[in-house]
Amino acid sequence: MKVTRVSVMLLSLASAPLAYAGDVDLSLTNDSAKGQVNFFNTNNDTQVGAGYTYHEGSRHIFNVDAHAQGRTAIGNLPTTAGLGVKGIFWDDDSLDGGALGIGGYATVNIPRVPGLSFTGGLHYAPSILSFGDSDDMTSLELRGSYRIIRNAEVFAGYRYLNTELDSPYRGDVNLDEGVLAGIKVFF
């Protein structure tokens, strides 16, 4: 059953949207598989993307991202940063919900080691921007990447997606959490 869902996810990501993609990102944790398509490259002033995560136990997580982005520097390190929103929608058996998180990301390139970069992204949605069974939501992803060829890189990192459940359920649920590894292909 797991193989079938992952195959369907990969085939759906490989369809028409790839014709317009700037990059495709595939990652795995011990309990989940995620595919992300970003439609513009790092030279554009905006970045729009969409993703799907299948988490073991029949949890489905969808995201849609929209960020203003630009080039800057942290110290003397070239950096691409983005500020914007991440819409996250999840479904898990009898519970479902979502949120519109506000936040951003930054990718810092290390000039002394060509191809090496570090990325961090954080989005938070308070209860006013949450719906369904979610009362708030936090999305965090940290990764180190190494570009092995001109149009592909490998990465490893950590992903954390947490929501507080609304009444009557109460409590926190880690929708997706764990050490991740993956590949990113640029078009």
Rank of each mutant, 00 (worst) to 15 (best):
A99G: 11
I110M: 15
A73P: 00
V37F: 02
V108I: 13
G120R: 07
W90Y: 13
L100H: 12
R71V: 04
G87P: 00
D172K: 09
G132Y: 01
T46G: 13
D45Q: 10
S117V: 07
L95H: 05
V108P: 03
M137A: 07
A106F: 12
Y105C: 02
S134F: 02
K184N: 02
G121M: 06
L95R: 14
F40V: 14
E153V: 08
S139A: 11
P111V: 09
Q47M: 15
D92N: 15
L180S: 05
N109G: 03
A66Y: 06
G103L: 12
N109P: 00
V37L: 14
S145I: 07
Y105W: 08
L180Y: 04
D172H: 04
K86I: 03
E141Q: 13
G157W: 07
V48Y: 11
G115N: 12
N41M: 08
N43H: 13
G98C: 13
Q47V: 14
E56S: 15
V154H: 04
L122R: 07
D136I: 14
G182C: 07
L175F: 06
R170W: 06
H123G: 01
P126H: 06
L142S: 02
F131V: 04
V64F: 11
R147W: 02
N43P: 00
V179Y: 12
K184I: 04
I148D: 02
F118W: 12
A68H: 13
P168C: 08
P126C: 04
Y105R: 12
G171P: 10
L142Y: 07
G49L: 06
E153D: 05
G82F: 03
P168L: 15
L116Q: 14
P114E: 05
I102L: 09
L100N: 05
P114C: 15
G75M: 10
R143T: 04
L122T: 04
T46R: 08
D133K: 11
P111C: 09
I128Q: 10
R59H: 02
V85D: 00
V48R: 03
F89P: 00
L95G: 01
E177S: 11
I102S: 02
N174C: 09
P78A: 06
R59S: 02
R59A: 03
H67S: 08
T80A: 06
S94H: 15
L116T: 03
G157C: 15
D96F: 12
T79F: 05
G103M: 11
D172L: 10
L77E: 01
R150V: 03
R147D: 00
T107M: 03
V185G: 05
